[in-house]
Nucleic acid binder design. Sequence first.
RNA 1: GCUCAUAUAGCUCAGCGGUAGAGCACUUGCUUGGUAAGUAAGAGGUCACCGGUUCAAGUCCGGUUAUGAGCUCCA
Length: 643
Amino acid sequence: MNITLPDGSIRKMENGSTGLDLANDIGPGLAKAAIAVSVNNIQRDLSDPINEDSEVSIITIDSDEGLEIMRHTLTAQVLARAVKNLYPNTKLAIGPTIKDGFYYDFEFVKPIAPDDLDKIEKEMQKIVNSKSSITKKLQTKKEALKAFNSAGESYKESIIEESEQEEDFQLYYQDDDAFVDLCRGPHLPSLKHIGAFKLTKLAGAYWKGDSKNKMLTRIYGTAWKNEKDLNAYLHSIEEAEKRDHRKIGKEMNLFHFQEEAPGMVFWHPNGWTVYRLLQDFMRDKLQAFDYQEINTPLVVDRKLWEASGHWDKYRENMFITEIDEEHANEKRTNALKPMNCPCHVQVYNQGLKSYRDLPVRYAEFGSCHRYEASGTMHGLMRVRGFTQDDGHIFCTEEQIETETKLFIELLSSTYKDLGFEKFDIKLSTRPETRVGSDEVWDKAESALESAIKKLDLPYEIEEGDGAFYGPKLDFVLTDAIGREWQCGTFQADFNLPDRLDAEYVGEDGQKHRPVMIHRAVLGSFERFIGVLIENYSGKLPFWLAPVQVAVATIISDVNDYASDVINQLENHGIRCHEDFRNEKISYKVREHSAAKVPVIMALGKREKESQTVSIRRIGSDKTTSMSLEDAVKALTVENSVPN
RNA sequence: GCUCAUAUAGCUCAGCGGUAGAGCACUUGCUUGGUAAGUAAGAGGUCACCGGUUCAAGUCCGGUUAUGAGCUCCA
């Protein structure tokens, strides 16, 4: 048979030759490094026979594929075995690879503690040191079931049970046959190819990811081809932890949370300054794109939520309020709004709208409350009380495309101004259960798609992932260390205008339903500020920094000059912090640097005499001197809000 | 919501049955010092909350609340 290699060359091999035979044929070095083989783009074990003309490449640990196979073997053959050695009655569930590592789900008889990971890790190392080779046996469904049944591995049994195949279940063994695992493969031919690894955490996870099922114990780990890569990875994790907005929020005195209001932010002066600046910035953007800002009630009678459908579908996430019976004349049940859309329809419905009025674009910095499950909250990123940069566009079906295009322009200009150059677009199309005719869906989906195309932007399609009421676009931005955050959204809605009876008079003099588009650029201010903090490690751009200039005196004789400097800066709208304390300048510099103040002005005798300032920028240890006048001018320019 | 862990001074943490500790921050004194920690002293705590075991409970055991890591959820 003919084997085509990645470089295009063709090698003649005997039918039934294995990947290992091929590697040997190419060279002994490759044979030694080979860990698996890719046959017509399907990964196979090195020992699998190849029976027909194929395109084949040898996988080594140096490739991403190879690394993944190594991680897979590490979890399925080494971690699973180590756990079985130490805790013999543990049941094995599943153990896949994930980004940078792997996990394995177990059902332990007695729960284990994080400290036990050390012990397991040592046992794993012992197994790896055996350098066992790994062999595979193929069994029928019946044989496989029997094997795992007698071993008491009920999860494996159920995996086999539910499988549609009858033959060729792959069972992998190490040299001593003492451990066997069912696996899709491929695996390393030998444990000697295992690189550097570390178990990282312990957590619960539902069997098959279903919260109705039993909670298993999941052990996470990371693995790399050598010690150096492992350390680099661990280091990058540490670096990401340093950016944690909860930690930086504390250091910069931006906000706090407390027990009496879980998931609700207490904004401190510094944090609220950032919040206000971002909101003002957003307000200008919206105005430039012809939105009209409105404001609607926080507390609204359940009748409206019943009409909108939220009472049925969303009630468990709503804060419901009742009025103290003793003092109320009438009992009514209200809810804190979890979304702004029904209220926006109320505003739209005031007065008759003509097709000439469309599109109507309402914006609201809408304060919403959602009762999020307790385990889901996470700093500013997931809260119960938040404010959306929300907006709703009422338009005709024909206008969807233009509105999509305009929105993407608004969004990309906003992200760019805030320092995010890269974002991805995801188009989610019709789900199985939905409202609206196929014809309308066709129109809306193609309107969204063609708008993106006209802007020449890349996008991905998420088939069937749309909301029941319409297709949507999600916008995912990438931060400074490559993490992705879904912030913006643009959702067509054929449902709510109908439920809440929104209409306009068309050219034909008849009443029609407008399409409603829900859209947000930042998502919520709370979360977006979290993203900004993590993106910038707290070192916000000058215009967004809560304190922009720390004016620190070197000797108390220059306090009067320093006050003058502060006055001039503040008169130009620059936010200053006065530091006249009886401390050394290095002490002050250290403190303001830690607080991530973008500019530190150190003022001493020299500056006072020459009417200059000495400027030190965050992240640099250089100082530059310039006249006070020039400094005020330069900082004023730098302080202008991007647009 | 589920699993596991955590809760001690403003912050970061130590203490793990017998009078509550450290570093930083804070206050005061001395020091006026040129770009990431001058110096000495002082003050600061219902050890999250409720209950139990014990002669004795931050410390052991239950429960509650919050937080953290995952899981589930995010019409």
